[in-house]
Structure formats: C-alpha cells, structure tokens
Design a protein around this nucleic acid. Structure first.
Length: 365
DNA sequence: GAGCCGTGGAT
DNA sequence: TATCCAAGGCT
C-alpha cells in the first residue's frame, strides 16, 4: 500500500491541485442540474437521496424521491412509519434492503442522536446502510466537511485524470481513490468538489464516448493528453447470471380473492409479497397441485397455463411459468399466506416480476 | 474478498 | 438479444 501511495503521490508532481479545484468547482456551480435533493442541505434529505442513488440513475430516482419525501418528510415521520409502508414506497426501485436499512438507521438517529444526523464519520458510518461512500457524501454535502465520497463516477473520472490503472472492480482499489481525493479535495467547498466529480462523470466523463471537448478539466487530464481516455478505467468482467425456473400459481378462492404470501425477511426481495412459487427443478406442472397441498394445506384445481414471465436480476434470471388455479373447497384457510381481494393487492409491495404477473391476471375480466 | 442484492435504460 | 451499467453496502 505504501508503494501504491508513493506511486499515487508521484502523479501530483506535475499536477496543479488549485487550478483543478477551481476549474471543476466553477463548472459545477455553473452547470449543475436542478435536482430535488439540491433544494437545500437538510441532512435527512441528502441522506435519503444518497441511499436511493446507490446503483440507480438520477432519472429513475427523481419520482421515487419526490413521493418518498412527501410521504416521509422528516426523520420523525420515517422513524414512526410502518415498515410495509416504507417498502411500498420503495416498490419498483430495487435493492430493497436499502429501504429497511434506512428506516433502521433513521430510528437509531431518532432515539440515540435525538433526531440529529451525526456530523462525524465514526457515528455516521456505523448506521445501517451507510458505507464509506455515503458517509463522505453526507458529511461533505450536508455539513461541508472535507471527506472523500468515492463512487463509480469518481473512480472513472480520476482514473482518467490521474491515469490510475488499478482494476476498479476490486474493493481495495477504492482506497487508492480515497487517498487521491483526500489530497485533491477543496477545503473551502468540499461539497461542490465531490458533487462536481460525480456530475462530471454523469454528464461529460461518461463510460463510453466521453465528451472531452466540453470537459472543464481537459487540460488536467493525463489520459486525454495521450488520447486513451476510452481505455480507462480498467474494470474486470462480472460473472454471467444463472437461469432459475419456477412455477408460480395464482390461486383464486370462491370469493374471487387471490392467495399471496410474504417472502422471507432476508435474501432476495426480502419481506416483499408474491404469489406461491415452486422451484421448477423440483416440481413439475403435473405435481403442482400435490406440492401446493403439502405447502399450503389446500386442495386446488389447476385451470390453465398463462404466459411465462422472464425477469433478469443482476445475478439471476427467473423463468416463471404462471398457472391459474381455483380452490376446491369453500372457506378454507391456508397454512401459509392469505387470500386478498384484487383491489387490496395494490396495498402490498410486490417486486417487479410479480407485478408482471399481476398485469396478466387483470386482463381477462 | 467474492457473492449477494433490483431495476430500467443505453448501446 | 446480449452486455453494461448507475451517486454501494452487507455478509
């Protein structure tokens, strides 16, 4: 690490940090987008935005953010909310542990810190869902404290400007960029510096075809000088997704209600709701009614096969064959899950693949 | 440290 | 269609 740090610091021999700061910050103040979380520096508003923006594009976040802040305007409001309501507000945004971790952390701030978001890295970084990036982002943006906030944008931008060739897919590489930012960050306006790096990455210094001709820090960029900006950053490939086949069954009782169940509290799509789903490598369509009797304690009659649903996650692909079934006896209560009217289904948080299924069952009326 | 954890848009 | 990816964190 010392060798790597020496190598890093050598890069600053011919580099004017002061001029770089000025060019970056002046550009940011001039060109920054008007975004809902930039209305003020309320630490709670900054916090929520940073969580939502994790691995998620600005355009996707904006409507979710506006609805969320209307629904949960303050730390107090979110702390007192029902977790299912928070998940419902997060429905469709993905990475649902972010929502549960956020509420968990907000409750801790409400009780332990008297509702004040900690203004130091030690306490802030211990909160659920607040890692190294989010810690630095909140401290710099909400409190003006000079701390690095290294995300994918920052690593891409600085890999080009400083010609850093470490593999940004490796976790330890982030430390090199944090060391670089610690050396480069403006003490006067760390907020604009950090946001400027990210804004530059989003608008100019993009992964493909960066707009170097419009870049405010072009003259500081080592990669541009050599015309190799598109070769950076170095990033190793991830592994391909595995396909997992499922059978999902829409069970309708005599009242026209549908059976839904809550997923486990941990793992994929934790605590969200779904229709009963069987691993298709273990259960065939012919065995489905028998499997259902074992799992849910009810007799069903499979009526028809609906359209299959395919959904690509970041690491898995679901291939779901959807079937429609009816209960055989009236008024029985299942061992798991609950029967819910079609209208009430809208009150439960469903992941996107099951929203796709819901789309199908509303068409035949 | 590698794998897990969503989604929708761009290319 | 296939791939990549976007203001990461947790285990």
């Amino acid at each position: 690490m010392n060798l790597e740090l020496d190598d890093l610091y050598n890069k600053f021999q011919q580099f004017s940090i002061d001029l770089f700061q000025d060019d970056l910050i002046n550009w940011f103040l001039q060109e920054k987008r008007s975004l809902p979380w930039r209305e003020n520096q309320d630490p709670y508003r900054v916090w929520v935005s940073e969580i939502m923006l994790q691995q998620t594009k600005v355009d996707t976040v904006i409507p979710f953010y506006n609805r969320f802040m209307e629904r949960f305007p303050t730390i107090q409001a979110l702390a007192e909310a029902d977790e299912q309501d928070v998940l419902k507000a997060w429905e469709g945004l993905g990475y649902y542990s972010r929502a549960r971790n956020l509420q968990n952390a907000v409750r801790e701030v409400a009780t332990v810190y008297d509702g004040q978001v900690p203004a130091n890295a030690e306490e802030l970084g211990k909160l659920k869902g607040v890692g190294p990036y989010t810690t630095g982002a909140i401290l710099s943006i909400a409190y003006g404290i000079p701390q690095p906030a290294v995300d994918g944008n920052v690593m891409r931008v600085l890999s080009r400007i400083l010609f850093i060739t470490e593999d940004i897919a490796k976790p330890k590489t982030r430390k090199i960029f944090e060391a670089a930012v610690e050396k480069m960050i403006s003490q006067e306006d760390p907020s604009s510096f950090n946001q400027g790096l990210m804004e530059l990455g989003a608008l100019i210094c993009t992964p493909k075809k960066p707009a170097c001709m419009l870049c405010p820090v072009q003259e500081h960029c080592a990669a541009f000088k050599q015309g190799i900006q598109e070769e950076l950053p170095i990033k190793s490939k991830g592994k391909k997704q595995r396909t997992k086949p499922y059978l999902s069954v829409i069970v309708e009782n005599e009242k026209g209600e549908l059976l839904i169940e809550q997923r486990p509290e941990e793992g994929l799509l934790a605590s969200l709701w779904q229709f009963p789903m069987a691993d298709a490598t273990e259960v065939t369509i012919e065995q489905l009614a028998y499997w259902f009797k074992l799992e849910y304690g009810l007799e069903i009659k499979v009526e028809e096969t609906l359209l299959p649903v395919r959904h690509v996650f970041s690491h898995i692909i679901w291939e779901v064959i959807v079937l429609r079934a009816t209960t055989v006896s009236d008024g029985e209560v299942p061992d798991k899950g609950r029967f819910v009217s079609r209208e009430d289904i809208a009150n439960y948080p469903f992941p996107v693949p099951h929203q796709k299924i819901i789309q199908q069952i509303h068409i035949p009326e």
